[in-house]
Design a protein around this nucleic acid. Structure first.
Length: 427
DNA sequence: TCTGGGGTCCTAGGACCC
DNA sequence: TCTGGGGTCCTAGGACCC
């Protein structure tokens, strides 16, 4: 008999909570965090959620109502959020041996064979510790499968929002009366059921998680593929998904919208050079190399005559060198570029990733290039940037004026990662 | 005027092989 | 005369997640 339980630990309104960490005056105020470029609302305090402001709502459409309620707005500050995320995860890792970092603000853990009381006690202690050390509120859901843990977490969070009914902790047990719980959960709130599937399901008379569990499994598989079938099984308490402790990447992408339309080749080259720098850093951080790089340029997709063009290149020799990759990327930009277009966005994709150790060295290239030298240079680059900030040392081709750079009009200081900004932050 | 930026997995269909 | 069928790899597209 399998008595494994999973817990999903989720930071509440994570980016908003990060901004509030250093601003206790904002605790009782509505707060929103915007996406890169200040385009969409990507994090909302409970005040906004209760007002019906949805995830990824365009900011310009909500601005009026947000101004009216005195909402405080931040541009996103991913340096800060990543740093806080690492600290939260580090605390979780001191409580549990088996942890899967699922996203910047979520982790699954596998619970030992504890009694119900022990589970609750340890989870509440974790919740209190994260609050005491970081001032970040979290919710914890426990269940016999990841899907049920996720569902439990939603309950813990949502009901906590209203009247603190569950105190941010909720557990679904396999032997519980599953019907009474699942019948209260709308099908669109189930993990693995998105907008399209929810629409199709309700059209077929399936409105709740419980309706879905009772649906004919062959019909589910036919219409919602194996993913739907797995979700259905997991809802009944049969484990399909295990803990994935080590994330392995298929590819790395670095793409951004520009702050304003860009027409000059020089500016596009600077932007792509910067994105390549970011992607190559990720590559090295994960100990990977690539031999396939692609670049795209596109105009505004909300306008007519939308243009998207991309090119890729296969390298003879796999690499993770910023210099080598940026050189290739810039060649592609020159080929793709068409004068007269208003470019709105560009990006770089690295695929066909291999571990540094397992990459076979090409006989043809190794004579021409000093690989060790390249590697030492990259290690030095990363070390210096880690110490002095991400852009301390960079390629000149990344540009200095950066007219293409994102709009970030209301970004908070990098207090936790930049000494300079800490010193100048008024507190 | 202003519309995020990453990722994952699965399926279907075509090319190619024997 | 009879015009196979299964496997693999690749790509594009469509769903999902945060």
């Amino acid at each position: 008999m399998n008595k494994t339980n999973f817990a999903l630990i989720d930071c509440n309104n994570f980016y908003v909570s990060c901004e509030r960490m250093f601003r206790p005056d904002l605790w009782q105020k509505p707060v929103a965090v915007l996406s890169n470029n200040d385009g969409c609302i990507v994090a909302r305090s409970n005040e906004l959620k209760n007002l019906g402001v949805v995830m990824a709502a365009p900011y310009f459409k909500q601005k009026e109502i947000l101004d009216k309620i005195g909402c405080v707005i931040f541009s996103s500050n991913y340096t800060l959020y990543n740093d806080i995320s690492n600290r939260v995860m580090a605390i979780i890792a001191t409580f549990f041996d088996k942890i899967e970092i699922y996203s910047i603000d979520e982790a699954f853990v596998e619970l030992p064979q504890w009694s119900a009381e022990e589970m609750q006690e340890v989870c509440m202690e974790l919740k209190n510790t994260v609050w005491k050390w970081l001032n970040i509120p979290i919710s914890i859901g426990v269940g016999p499968t990841k899907t049920l843990a996720k569902l439990a977490n939603e309950k813990a969070k949502k009901d906590g929002r209203k009247d603190n009914l569950y105190n941010g902790y909720y557990r679904v047990e396999k032997n519980d009366d599953l019907e009474s719980i699942l019948a209260t959960v709308e099908i669109r709130d189930v993990w693995g059921i998105g907008r399209k599937y929810a629409k199709k399901l309700t059209e077929n008379g399936i409105y709740t998680a419980w309706d879905f569990v009772r649906a004919d499994s062959a019909w589910v598989k036919k219409n919602f593929s194996v993913m739907g079938a797995r979700t259905q099984k997991e809802l009944t308490g049969q484990t399909y998904y295990g803990l994935e402790e080590k994330a392995s990447r298929q590819g790395i992408a670095s793409t951004r919208s520009f702050g304003r339309p860009v027409t000059a080749l020089k500016d596009l080259m600077e932007a792509v050079s910067s994105y390549t720098t970011i992607a190559a850093q990720k590559l090295r951080k994960d100990g990977l190399e690539t031999n396939c790089l692609s670049v795209f340029l596109m105009t505004n997709r909300f306008k007519i005559n939308f243009v998207y063009a991309n090119l890729d290149v296969k390298l003879v020799q796999a690499t993770n060198s910023t210099h080598v990759l940026a050189t290739e990327a810039l060649k592609l930009v020159k080929k793709i570029y068409k004068p007269g277009l208003n470019y709105a966005k560009a990006g770089v994709f690295l695929t066909n990733l291999h571990s540094q150790d397992e990459v076979a060295y090409s006989l043809f290239e190794s004579e021409n290039r000093d690989l060790d030298k390249e590697k030492r240079a990259m290690t030095a680059l990363d070390t210096i940037n880690k110490k002095f900030g991400r852009d301390a040392l960079k390629l000149l081709s990344n540009g200095i004026a950066k007219p293409w750079q994102m709009k970030q009009t209301q970004v908070s200081p990098k207090i936790t990662t930049s000494w300079q900004e800490l010193m100048t932050a008024d507190s």
